[in-house]
Design a protein around this nucleic acid. Structure first.
Lengths: 219, 219
DNA sequence: GCTTTTCGTTCAGCTTGGTGTCAGCTAAAT
DNA sequence: ATTTAGCTGACACCAAGCTGAACGAAAAGC
């Protein structure tokens, strides 16, 4: 689930982001409203966590503008315990839920899961591989340190392995997937990419079966 | 699709099993982990639904053991709404998805359908030889202790025997399969590889017919 | 239009584990 | 008891694979 976290406190922001990532979601952290607007313009989100005490504008107004534009993305408000009126204002402005700071991270993830269930249109099944969560359709990988980006060739090779979990995939099979049948490559390109994949995703993600091919790791 | 449902609550278990059956799948209901292990030993499943609150052991450990043995069968965890850490632990242990109890049966079947779609169309035929399950196309062997890897030469020799079950295969036939007709080997190479095969796969997998050749074991 | 970055490919030097060989042994057959 | 076929631990060798580096091409940024 793509989650936009709008929070200016770096300590809290990073803690929440890491927690969300550990739950298998894909969080983006925006420290300001303007940065959040930029992110929203480029990418759809499934949930927005909105801190109301931000430096560059009122979060309430941001939320109202969002709803005025017709967005139905669920919004969860983060607010201090003594800002009761703010909370009510937020709910009236179109927030779906709220969390009172300081809050338990476990409770936050539980609420997020509740939202996820309520809005369960999760069209992209996630493949779990050790600490990695892979969205095959979206070409997105999340590891313990957040989003992992693969280049085109890297992704093709990784995908070739993902499509046959537990099976041995020979180099020529991978070559066929990259270079449509003709124009073979006459070097160790595959090996280089496997090396780069291992560097990005972890040593054990791809295992070598000498003389036979490669196989997805069994972590 | 063969589905193993591990759930100790009879009411929920039967309801889910009936629902799965109504969808056209083939569910087996295991009320305990040990019963589930028995079922898994006798039959391959396409999906495992695992309740984490079982009487005879931690479901997490069961899942970890399963993955350690090299199983790639998708596992969906069933957990109570307040067991958040358990859920995280489960995903880290190799679960592919989770459902929070109480859940909607319709949502469960939707998720099962998603898994079915994801894993559709690649079940290679399995050869069973005693405790071994052999996927000839994937070059993968599953033994009682999990995945067993063979080197190229080892695999060729094993394959030569698998292709003629019950028949006696002479050493020269095997040599022909390894070294295309010419450049014979002038040593006891075959014997060495048979020895290595027996060490990896078990004493009785290959039996010697003195003076004639080898034959697959008949367990 | 020019610079910078990213990506794909190739090469060279290095590491590693499969392969083939032998020696000494076990066990079956005569 | 002797012979002979087969078994297996040990070992050296070398091809398969790994990886840092380099470089041109393409894309992106200025």
């Amino acid at each position: 689930m793509r989650i936009l976290l709008i929070e200016d406190d770096p300590g809290l922001g990073n803690a929440v982001r890491d927690q969300i990532a550990a739950e298998g979601h894909m969080p983006d952290l925006a420290p300001t409203l303007s940065y959040a607007r930029d992110l929203l313009a480029t990418m759809p989100y499934d949930l927005i966590l909105l801190d109301l005490g931000l430096p560059d504008g009122r979060g309430i107004d941001f939320l109202k503008a969002l709803r005025a534009k017709g967005s139905v993305t669920p919004v969860m408000i983060l607010t201090a315990h003594d800002r009761i009126t703010e909370r009510i204002e937020g709910l009236n402005a179109g927030a779906d839920d709220y969390m009172i700071k300081p809050f338990d991270l476990a409770e936050l993830t539980a609420r997020i899961a509740a939202v996820a269930r309520r809005y369960a249109g999760n069209p992209n099944p996630l493949i779990t591989l050790g600490a990695l969560k892979i969205d095959l359709a979206a070409h997105a990988i999340h590891g313990p340190k957040g989003q992992i980006d693969l280049s085109q060739r890297e992704w093709i090779i990784f995908e070739a392995l993902l499509q046959r979990p537990g099976q041995i995939v020979s180099k020529s099979q991978i070559e066929d997937q990259i270079y449509a049948f003709d124009s073979e490559v006459e070097s160790n390109t595959i090996e280089v990419y496997v090396s780069r994949l291992r560097k990005k995703l972890g040593k054990d993600v791809v295992q070598t079966l000498r003389g036979m091919g490669y196989r997805l790791g069994t972590p």
